[in-house]
Design a protein around this nucleic acid. Structure first.
Lengths: 201, 201
DNA sequence: TAAAAAATTGTATGAGCATACAAAAATGTG
DNA sequence: CACATTTTTGTATGCTCATACAATTTTTTA
C-alpha cells in the first residue's frame, strides 16, 4: 500500500533524529546526521518531510512518549493515590534515561522552544499533562488553594533534578533524584494526609 | 598607557556580548552582533580576542558576577545565619534579572557547557560557590550527613525555578520563586533550628 | 610636523548547513 | 518485457557565520 512505505520511512527518520538528539542535543541535529542515523542518504529528509523542523517536532513528541510510557507502566501497578503519585515521580526518572547526555538534550529542547512556537506548544502540553497528573493524586487531601503550590513545587523539583543531571559535575542518580523529591513531598503532605491517600481508590 | 585602551575595548565587547546574551541567548550570539552591541565595527573582535569563545568565557563570568553582587549586597545587611541564607535565596532571584529571556540565556549556557570544557569549569565553580555559601549558613544546625542533602535540595530548587521561568507559559515571579523555596526550607529546618540560626553570629 | 605605531574598518575566504532537485535506481503495471 | 511510477541518491545552491587580513584612519613619538 502507498501509505505504508511513507509511514515507515517517516518513523525511521523520527527515530534516527531521536537517537541523534540523545547523543548531540538539539543543536547537533543536522539533516545529514539524522539521515545517517536512520541509515539513509542525506537528501531523503526533504522527500519525506517539509523541513528539518517538522522532523524535530515529531521527534520531541516521540521522546516525550518514551518518558510518558514509563509513567504509564508504573501507574498500572498503583492501586491508590499515593502509589500513583510515586509512579509519576519515579516514572520521570527511569534509570535508562536519566543520563547527562539525555538531560542535556532535554535542556536544549527547552531552550529551542523559546524561539519556536510549535515546540513551545508541545512544552506547554507536556507541562499541563504533568500538572494534571499530579493534581489528580492529591486533590482530595490538599485544599484548592494549596494545590497549585504543591503541583508547582513538585514540577520545579522534577525539572530541577533534570537540570542538575545535565551538569557534568553532578553525580545524581535516578534513585537519588526520586529520594530527594520524595523527601520534600513527605514533608509537604505529612503522614495524616498520606495515610488518606493510601486508602485504595 | 598601552594596557588601558585594550582593557577598555575588551570590557566593552564583553558587556556588548552580555547584552546580546540576555536578548538572544548563547546561540544568538554572533561576532557581528556582539560588535554592533558594543558600538564597534564587525571585525574588531578578532583584534582584541583570540576567538568568539574567549569572549563567551569572559561574558559568562561577567554575567555571574552580576548575580553574585546581588547576593553579596543582601549579605551585608544580614546579621545572623538565617538572614544570610535568605540573602542567598533572594539574591538568586533579583526582580530585574528574573525574566524569561534571561532565564533562557542561562539555560543555553548550561547546554553549551556540556561541550565546552572552559564553560564547564566555570559552571562547576559557580556551583561550588553556591553550595559553600549555603553550607556555611546551616552547618551549625544540620548534621554533617544531612548537610549534603539540604544543600543539594536548595540548589535543585533554585535551578528548578530558573528553568521554570525559562518556559514561556510560566508566570512565576521573583517573589513567587523565593516563597516557594522558603517554604521548603522552613519545612526542612523546622522552627527550632531556625531560632538557633537567628542568634547573631 | 613627519614617521612610526596602534587602532579600526570593511571585506574576502572558507566552513557548515538546510533545502531543492536532477539523475539514477527500484518497483510496480499492463 | 516495455513503460510508468515511486523511491533514493548525490550534489548544487544559497545562506549564515567565524576568522583573517589588507587597507585606512587615528594616535603616538621624536
Amino acid at each position: 500500500m502507498k501509505r505504508s512505505i511513507e509511514d515507515i520511512r517517516r518513523q525511521e527518520l523520527i527515530e534516527g533524529a531521536y537517537r541523534a538528539f540523545l547523543q548531540f542535543g538539539i543543536d547537533g541535529l543536522t539533516t545529514a546526521r539524522i539521515c545517517k542515523e536512520a541509515g539513509m542518504s542525506p537528501g531523503i529528509l526533504s522527500y519525506y518531510f517539509k523541513s528539518k523542523d517538522e522532523v524535530l517536532f515529531w521527534m520531541v513528541r516521540h521522546a516525550n512518549r518514551v518518558i510518558m510510557d514509563e509513567v504509564a507502566n508504573r501507574m498500572k501497578a498503583a492501586t491508590n493515590r499515593w502509589d500513583r503519585l510515586m509512579a509519576i515521580i519515579e516514572g520521570n526518572f527511569p534509570e535508562s534515561l536519566f543520563e547527562q547526555n539525555i538531560a542535556n538534550a532535554w535542556l536544549s529542547f527547552y531552550v529551542a522552544s523559546a524561539r519556536d512556537p510549535q515546540l513551545e506548544r508541545l512544552q506547554r502540553l507536556f507541562h499541563r499533562r504533568l500538572a494534571s497528573n499530579i493534581s489528580s493524586c492529591v486533590s482530595d487531601v490538599v485544599s484548592a488553594a494549596a494545590l497549585k503550590d504543591f503541583v508547582e513545587t513538585v514540577a520545579v523539583l522534577i525539572d530541577g533534578c533534570w537540570l542538575h543531571r545535565a551538569a557534568m559535575h553532578s553525580q545524581t542518580t535516578s534513585f537519588g533524584a526520586v529520594e530527594l523529591i520524595k523527601t520534600q513531598v513527605l514533608q509537604m503532605l505529612g503522614s495524616d494526609r498520606i495515610s488518606g491517600m493510601m486508602k485504595a481508590s
